[in-house]
Amino acid sequence: MIEVSNLHKDFGLKQVLRGVDLKINTGESLTIIGQSGCGKSVLLKHLVGLLEPDKGTVFVDGEAITGAPRKQVYQIRKKFGVLFQSAALFDSMTVEENVGLGLFEHTAMTPGERAKRVADCLEMVSLNGTQKLKPAELSGGMKKRVGLARAIALNPQYILYDEPTTGLDPITADSINDLIIHLNEELHVTTIVVTHDMVSAFKISDRIVMLHLGTVIFSGTPSETKSTSVEMVRRFIEGEAEDKSVVTHY
């Protein structure tokens, strides 16, 4: 279980998080939505201790990762797989080395076992056979999927997905949705997804929360989300920029 309590984070004069409270139950599939720049990626980075908050705490299975000594932070991070918004592949390494790095560092696998696990992970994102390529030789969507393969390689308990389907065609996006569901339901991975893709959000999540102006303003199941009366959420789902009335002035 992850518990975020009263999380605050500023960058200079810019207040990004202003008291986020959020509880993510073990086994849950949670989607975080919110406008671009509202701090979703910043929130994810706090969950694995990549950013230190100005105020507030993040507990992972009851242990505070915020302010913990480095050794303990690393122990907690081993429970996580993270897919970065930019994929963040190591560009000096091949696809195989990217996906296998965690296995190499944290397990006693033989090279053969490692190659097998890497191939399995790549198979899950339909990229088996790309082992020897460098990230620069991949398309944007392929990088995302290699990033996903890397995130799942060590069988983490928690997976954080920062916009897993952005930049993918609808068919590949749907296969990624299925993979996320599979990992969540079959392997009981607690899933936290940040996305703008509402089709994906409705399909994969048990619960959707919305981040706005630095706090969580809404939390509900997909069907509650569809029928909500909360103005911001409704506009977000329907893709409306402003109040309709503004348009009539033109």
Binding site: L50, R70, Y74, F80, V82, A88, L101, G102, H106, L154
Partner: peptide, 17 residues
Amino acid sequence: SMKVTEQIDALESMAIS
């Protein structure tokens, strides 16, 4: 360039110092 492309964050998130 690893820092600005989040590769260092990625490495750290994998519990690699």
